[in-house]
C-alpha cells in the first residue's frame, strides 16, 4: 500500500475512534478498563482524533505528514494517560494492558508512516518540458538571460531583480498576499544555448533551473527545453510553496512556457481577462473554473 493510502486509512480510523469517544465516552472508558468517570477528558481526546482524521482525509496528497505527526503526538498522550491509569486501584488492569498494547501497535505504525511521508514530501521535485518557438536561439536566449523579463510570462512571479552579472533576487506570490523569496546565481551560461541557475543558501525554497535552446530541424524554430526543480520546505512555508506551484507543477510549467512562446512569437499573451460577458465580473470565477477543469 502507498504511504498516502495508509495515512488516509489511519484518518478513517481516527474518525471512528473520535466519534466513539465523543458520543459514548462512558462506554469507551469501560471498554478500556477505566472505572472512574473521565468523560470530559475522553471527549477532548475524541475531538483531537476527529481533527486529525479530518485533516488526513482533506489534506493534499503531498501535505499529509503534519497530520500524521499530530497522530503520533496523540498516541504519546494516549499512552501516558493509559500509563497513569495503572496507578488507580479501581481500574481493570487486564483491559488497560490490552488497550495499551493496541495503542503501542498503532503508535509504531503511525511513526513509520510519518517518517516515510516526511521523506517523500521533502524529496526534490523536478519538472521537464519542451516547446517549439519560431524565433532564433539568440533572440530567445537574450530575452531569458535577463531574468527581470521572467515575471512577464510566469504569472506566479512578482518580480526578479538582477543584482549583478550572475546574481538575482526573486519574489514569488504566495496565497493571501504571502511572499516567497530567494536569491539565485547563474551556475552555467553558454551564450545563445544554455542557462542554468540555482538558489543560494538562505532561500525560502531551494530551487534550480536549466533552459536550453536548440535549433529545430526545420531551420525556422528553436526547441526550448526547460527543467525546473525545488525541494519542498516543511511547515507553514511548505504549504505556501505547495500552493505556489500548484497541485500540478507540470501544468504550471507548461502554461508558463506557453506564455513565453506566445510573447516571443506574437508580442503579447492572448487572454480574455477583462472582456465583457453577460454576468457580473465578480461572478465569473473564471480562473478557478479553468483550473478545476484542468486538474479534473
Amino acid at each position: 500500500m502507498k504511504q498516502q493510502d495508509l495515512a488516509r486509512a489511519l484518518g478513517w480510523f481516527s474518525i471512528g475512534l473520535g466519534v466513539a469517544e465523543l458520543l459514548a465516552p462512558r462506554k469507551f472508558e469501560k471498554a478500556i478498563g477505566v472505572r472512574k468517570n473521565h468523560n470530559g477528558l475522553t471527549r477532548s481526546y475524541g475531538l483531537r482524533e476527529l481533527t486529525a482524521g479530518i485533516g488526513l482525509l482533506a489534506a493534499d496528497e503531498k501535505k499529509l505528514s503534519p497530520w500524521m505527526w499530530s497522530r503520533v503526538a496523540g498516541d504519546v498522550l494516549d499512552l501516558a494517560s493509559l500509563g497513569s491509569g495503572f496507578s488507580s486501584e479501581r481500574n481493570h488492569k487486564g483491559k488497560l494492558a490490552l488497550a495499551s498494547a493496541a495503542v503501542l501497535g498503532v503508535t509504531v505504525a503511525d511513526i513509520l508512516c510519518s517518517v516515510q511521508l516526511t521523506k517523500e514530501e521533502t524529496e526534490p521535485t523536478s519538472v521537464r518540458r519542451a516547446v517549439s518557438i519560431r524565433k532564433s536561439p539568440q533572440e530567445l536566449y537574450q530575452f531569458w538571460r535577463n531574468f527581470e523579463n521572467l515575471p512577464r510570462f510566469m504569472y506566479h512571479l512578482e518580480a526578479v531583480t538582477v543584482t549583478d552579472g550572475t546574481r538575482s533576487h526573486w519574489v514569488a506570490k504566495g496565497p493571501a498576499k504571502t511572499k516567497v523569496e530567494w536569491d539565485a546565481e547563474i551556475i552555467d551560461d553558454e551564450p545563445n544555448h544554455l542557462i542554468a541557475w540555482q538558489s543560494l543558501p538562505g532561500s525560502d525554497v531551494e530551487n534550480w533551473g536549466t533552459i536550453r535552446f536548440d535549433p529545430a530541424q526545420n531551420g525556422k524554430e528553436t526547441i526550448v527545453h526547460v527543467e525546473l526543480g525545488y525541494i519542498p520546505p516543511g511547515g507553514a512555508l511548505g504549504a505556501i510553496v505547495a500552493k505556489l506551484f500548484g497541485e500540478a507543477p507540470e501544468q504550471q510549467i507548461k502554461d508558463d512556457l506557453r506564455h513565453f512562446k506566445q510573447l516571443m512569437e506574437t508580442g503579447e499573451i492572448p487572454t480574455t481577462e477583462g472582456q465583457s460577458a453577460g454576468r457580473a465580473k465578480s461572478a465569473t470565477k473564471y480562473e478557478s473554473y479553468v483550473r478545476d477543469l484542468v486538474s479534473a
Binding site: 519560431r134 502554461d255 506557453r258 512569437e265 506574437t266 499573451i269 492572448p270 480574455t272 477543469l293 484542468v294
Partner: peptide, 24 residues
C-alpha cells in the same frame, strides 16, 4: 496569430498561440 508554425503553413485554425485555454 500569423506568427506560429501553423499560421506559417496557412493552417490558421491550428494556430498555437490564440487559445488562452489551450490546457483544457
Amino acid at each position: 496569430c500569423g506568427n506560429c508554425y501553423f499560421c506559417d503553413k496557412q493552417m490558421f485554425s491550428l494556430c498555437e498561440n490564440s487559445n488562452p485555454n489551450a490546457s483544457i
